[in-house]
Amino acid sequence: MVPVLIGTTLLIYLAVFALPGDPIRTLGGDKPMPPAVYQALRHHYHLDEPLIVQYGQYLWGLLHGDFGETLNGQPVSDVMKTDWAVTARLAVTAWIFELVVGIGLGVWAGRRKGGVVDTLVLSGTTLVIAIPVFVLAYSAQLLFGLKLGWFPTAGTDDGWPYSYLLPGIVLGSASLAYIARLTRTSLVENFRADYVRTAVAKGLSRRRVLVRHTLRNSLVPVITYLGVDLGSLMAGTIVIEGIFNLPGIGGQIFTAIQIKDGPTVVGIATLLVLVYLFANLVVDILYGVLDPRIRYE
């Protein structure tokens, strides 16, 4: 876990600081900056030291909970604190949606392979995967927001969950399709296993065979996917927040990349990677709950 965190942040750090252009000169606007001020600012942001030393200092600060300072002089953690909640709510809405509806659709389709429901779910999910997420977002906004008026089209005025429903559904739709297909395939494979035949032969009800015997075993790959997906949902907010005008860190990081505000980009990216790693840790623990054969000594 720790090597992954260090490696990934280093990767982003290198990429961001390889961005062309001088952020300090940009700060001065059109007027040339006095050399003394320029030097002082460069020193303040440690830009006069080798990249690897800068990175070391950054990591050291991170260990103490210090995310650094944006180029406007604001602590990065303050910037994140205000916008973090919006993105977290959005991602969690999407995540719950894909978890409940995705597994539900997968089970519904997997119960009878080759049936009408199965065919419909398979073709529907393929179509959803094929449509780019921003096209889906605009279409949903136009149809359900403007034409039908079911959901607010932009902003967070209506609070959670109402304001976050439509963006969350759009954000989670592609993953939902993957989860439904994964659940379905896994379920279909497991239905052929010997222990299922045994359970049926014992005279257990259809429902109990499905829920307690087959589903529990089929969910292992789905849980893995759900864990990995929380990270990509966070990154997906870059697109969604812009379209639905939500003031979250996805929009924040996109602006920061464009104005070359390195500390903000690395700070937010680090946070996203932390979320991803934490979700994976939870998944690892859940494995043991789902499958008692997996034990952590």
Binding site: L5, G7, T8, A15, A18, I257, L277
Partner: peptide, 20 residues
């Protein structure tokens, strides 16, 4: 090394590097 690249959200990584 695979883990490290896996931990980097694809869209985020692509946007950062492409801007550079």
């Amino acid at each position: 090394i695979t883990d490290i690249f896996f931990g980097l959200p694809l869209l985020l990584g692509a946007v950062v590097i492409l801007t550079a």
